[in-house]
């Protein structure tokens, strides 16, 4: 049928063109082509592990899960803030989902937002060499308008979950064509997964929209929102990870984030996977080891902030180990319909 329709259409167009040709012996020159105005999209935000100053910011299409084509690049300022401009020379509207990646390079500095970052104390800058290679990311969606996209370790975990899901062979998740509505849904679903990893209930939270601040800026830490305050301290606590010989803080944080991604990939593929055995055993061990440090450190940071501001911080208790069952339960309900009886009338 499609072929018939196409053939008929092609024939009618051909006839129409022939008719035009016969009817007119002269041709009208094309008017001057309208100059193409490139379109631009501004993406701005802040990079906060502690404040990441002078780090490289790269933007990719979200469908480019291997991050092979940089669409635009910029650098964070001394406050960790950035603005990057994506340009399309064809003049087409720039819409869809994007990855924003912040990479610590040779001149990047970071404020220590944990009680002790190696030998650096709370609120002081960390040396560049221990940060080199630290990579944080986020995803954001634009309908053509400028967007905000803050980057921190939590958005990184959630972004990794989204990209991992999209990278699974045969995945139905298509980040190239995803709608704004579905994009919001996957941000929330990724938040829920990160919450399950950390042991914090994020079932009603989109952590991409949270204002995670540098905890060393003590007055900025929320004193009212327990979830926001807890996540801010968790983000900060990663700066206190123990650094093994021959390693760096960047390596430790990257290793933890990679472990979270590995476990997430396994659980996405099989919600009932036994994470403690096989390929994921080492990743789970890394997560649990880090989780124990996080659980201790957030209390320590909270105490540091209270000592500084005199105001109590509402902090949720964070478990010292990942709850595998809770992580698997995040899948939710695979139910097609509801109790009752279907009826149809007037068919056939």
């Amino acid at each position: 049928m499609k072929t018939i329709v196409r053939t008929a259409l092609a024939a009618s167009i051909a006839l129409a063109l022939t008719a035009c040709h016969n009817d007119s012996k002269t041709t009208t020159p094309d008017p001057d082509p309208i100059p193409v105005v490139p379109t631009e999209l501004d993406i701005s935000g802040g990079a906060v592990k502690g404040v990441l100053a002078l780090a490289t910011v790269n933007v990719y299409a979200a469908s480019d899960t291997e991050k092979t084509t940089v669409l635009a690049t910029a650098q964070t300022d001394a406050s960790g803030d950035y603005t990057v401009k994506v340009v399309d020379d064809t003049g087409a509207a720039i819409t869809g989902a994007f990855i924003v990646e912040v990479v610590a390079d040779t001149d990047t500095t970071m404020i220590c937002d944990a009680t002790l970052c190696g030998e650096i104390t709370f609120g002081n800058p960390i040396a560049t060499d221990t940060l080199l290679g630290l990579t944080l990311s986020t995803v954001a969606y634009s309908d053509g308008s400028a967007i905000d996209a803050d980057v921190n370790s939590l958005t990184t975990m959630a972004t990794d979950s989204i990209l991992a899901s999209a990278s699974i062979a045969g995945s139905p998740l298509d980040l190239a064509t995803i709608t704004a509505e579905d994009f919001l849904a996957i941000q929330e679903d990724a938040s829920e997964i990160v919450g399950a990893v950390l042991g914090v209930d994020l079932s009603e939270t989109n952590l991409f929209s949270l204002n995670i601040v540098d905890a060393s800026n003590t007055s900025e830490v929320s004193t009212e929102d327990e979830t926001l305050a807890t996540l801010t301290l968790i983000n900060a606590s990663l700066s206190s990870l123990e650094v093994a010989d021959g390693s760096s803080l960047a390596d430790e944080i990257n290793e933890y984030l990679a472990a979270v991604e590995e476990v997430t990939v396994a659980i996405l593929a099989d919600p009932e996977a036994d994470l403690g055995s096989g390929d994921t055993a080492a990743a789970l061990a890394t997560i649990n080891e880090t989780q124990a440090q996080i659980a201790d450190e957030i209390d320590a940071i909270a105490a540091e902030i209270v000592a500084d501001t005199g105001i109590a911080i509402p902090v949720a208790e964070v478990p010292t180990e990942l709850d595998e069952d809770a992580l698997g339960d995040i899948v939710g309900d695979i139910i097609d319909g509801t109790g009752g009886t279907g009826g149809t009338g007037g068919e056939g």
Binding site: A269, D333, I335
Partner: peptide, 26 residues
Amino acid sequence: YENQETPEREYYDGCNILFPACWKEP
């Protein structure tokens, strides 16, 4: 029967759609 449009994949309500298991068969 031959579908002339590629239908969108649908997923189960109340399911975390990052899990491939939450998507109905194409």
